[in-house]
Amino acid sequence: MTEFTPIAATIGGILIGLAAAMMMLFEGRIAGISGILSGALKKSDGTPPAWQATFLGGLVLGGIVLTAAQGFVERDFVMTELSISPVLAIAAGLLVGFGTRLGNGCTSGHGVCGIPRLSMRSILATLTFMAAAAATVYLTNHVFAFGGLS
């Protein structure tokens, strides 16, 4: 359904790797988005904005710039043509939020930052969420027909 875009994917991956590398080399922090979002949701103790909130600000800024850039370069960065119902999106959010905290990480923390460390926890977590996600896509689109692709 979507085109195979290995070059754009590799360039994007390199940028993600560079961003995560900056967080480690400057701050000594793992760029795991679920952990950063969770950290930003902690009560403030009166100190200046936590680094987590600043990083999330960068993500939001990036989203705004990407959205604005779409009109100029005739490429889609931040948009979808799929009809993903609110109910599906809300259920997905609850599962992703709860699951990433229970499993201590998501695609970025376990995948991007964990696999290069050869962390067995991260490698197993990545294999598990990839397999669960692929099974879910199969079931919701090819067995039942309520997924975004069906």
């Binding site: 259920a91 499993g103 969420f129 896509v137």
Partner: peptide
């Protein structure tokens, strides 16, 4: 936790 996350990821992408 990883499995629950994966299910949610597969639901909406």
């Amino acid at each position: 936790g990883a499995a629950i996350f994966g299910i949610g990821w597969g639901l909406a992408g």
